[in-house]
Design a protein around this nucleic acid. Sequence first.
DNA 1: CAAGTCTGCCAC
DNA 2: AAACGTGGCAGACTTG
Length: 564
Amino acid sequence: MHILVTSLERGFALEDRRDAVPAAHSAHSSSTSGSSTSSATADSNPGVRIVPDAIGLAQLVSERERSATPGDPIRWVWNSQDIVPRLLAHGVRVGRCHDLRLTGRILITAGYLDARFDVADARGGAHPGEGLFDLDAENPGTVAATRELFEAQLAAIEAADQGGTRKGALAFLVGAESAGTLVAAELRASGMPFSVERHERVLVDVLGSRRAGGRPAKLEAAASSVRAALGEQTLNVDSPKDLLAALRRAGLDVASTSKWELWGKEHPVVEALLHYKRLHRLFTANGWTWRDEWIHGGRFRPDYVPGGVVTGRWATSGGGAMQLPKEIRSAVVADPGWKLIVADAAQLEPRILAAMSGDEAMARAGAQRDMYTAFVDRGVVPDRDSAKVAMLGAMYGATTGQSAVLLPGLERVYPRAMGLVASAARSGERGQQVHTWLGRTSPWPPAEFSPRDFGRFTRNFIVQGTAAEWALTWMAGIRQRLAKLGVVTGGATGAVVDAPLEQTAHLAYFLHDEVVVHAPAEVAERAAVEVVAAAAEAGRLLFSGSQVTFPVVAHVVDSYGDAK
DNA sequence: CAAGTCTGCCAC
DNA sequence: AAACGTGGCAGACTTG
């Protein structure tokens, strides 16, 4: 059963759809069908209900979720960005949804859906200028417009999947993308446990004590060391321009002040400056100011942005969540009586390439626990480090350096895999679109573009984007599996809605190919098993028949810093 | 002086 | 002044 929800400032409208699979409809003749449905009102359409606020909606959603059964599941249709966080604020979780905004973006980028259905424009298909998600109780025509948008999306997905090589891939992608919105909202709602005390220990150890209005002692000392090494007592170390000039006066042949350029240069200032840079970075990016802004109530709550990257990867907004340096991960600590499960997928992108290319030889390597070691055993590369560099170079489009040297070896042994990324690169160079495994489509190049650069982009897009699809599938599976572990501190088990986030094992952090789960200690080992199992299941769901495996290393620890 | 751009570094 | 993909962010620097 589909249940369509539109939101507004003062309340919500909700419409039941009893037909799980809509009958054939005229998604592309909205100008006529729209006029006939736009007059629908709550009175004339008994399927439409209007609730005054988020609490009312939460109650309704909760009731419907409880009534759902495995044989009669509910799929909520909405802009989850607007609605899910408000439901979570009232303690209500849902099982499945269809996100209109992210689905629309996928379909429109691919050219499967007319751009006039773009939710981002906040216009209903048949009602230009009318806010899709700005429903007014006196203007329930918006419900009809939203329903029309949904049906147009379903029709576009159906048509694309019929024409695609793998039936149902796009529908699966839309489901995974939508599930991602639920995961993202729950990640933010639950947050990652973070110990201010442990963080303080790191800062004091590395930087010295916090000093009101000033810089900590060790940071100042490091700056002084740089000035001393350069013999320039008044140098402003934080000014790249001044620093570069000072370095050159000291006889260093450098064109910038960056680490890679300093590295290896013979001069006493190098070590001092690299040390200062490390301290300065910690101070500015993850120091006291960062903590005051982002850590509240023992939780780090970054704002995850599903689909925030063109490839389908997530982005985050605020707090630098996806750059959390290893240096401060020791401050991520489980609550008393709880554990963290830190899990990361081993060599995810090479495995993705092996699976999606159907390269038998690479798939055999991908069936091994350590794919890179399998490359070495095969005699493709001399050592494991070379294997890693070569694979990354192949997926990024390296043309020089060590990885480029190793490429011919890879091409000889793994022709189909290398051929796939080379083909994607050629498409980009010609200004064409490419597709991930599940059918996410790359954007068109800008009017002025460098063929070489855009080729490298599309080369990487297919692998990075498919890896993101695997990760979405993995997390959606983890979410479902953790919910089944049930409520430990009381209440019923089973239905998602009955497992409040704060009381049961939940996802706490995500980083492309890595997750952190926060779980009561008594279910931590079981949660770790589920995380590993969800990875294997994600592999089967995406690449049924492939021998490539997706091993996950899961550590049950008290602190993120204790994992590897 | 606010807004935009550049530099450099963190993550994958 | 990066080579070799995707990002976010702080602080310096530039511009209107």
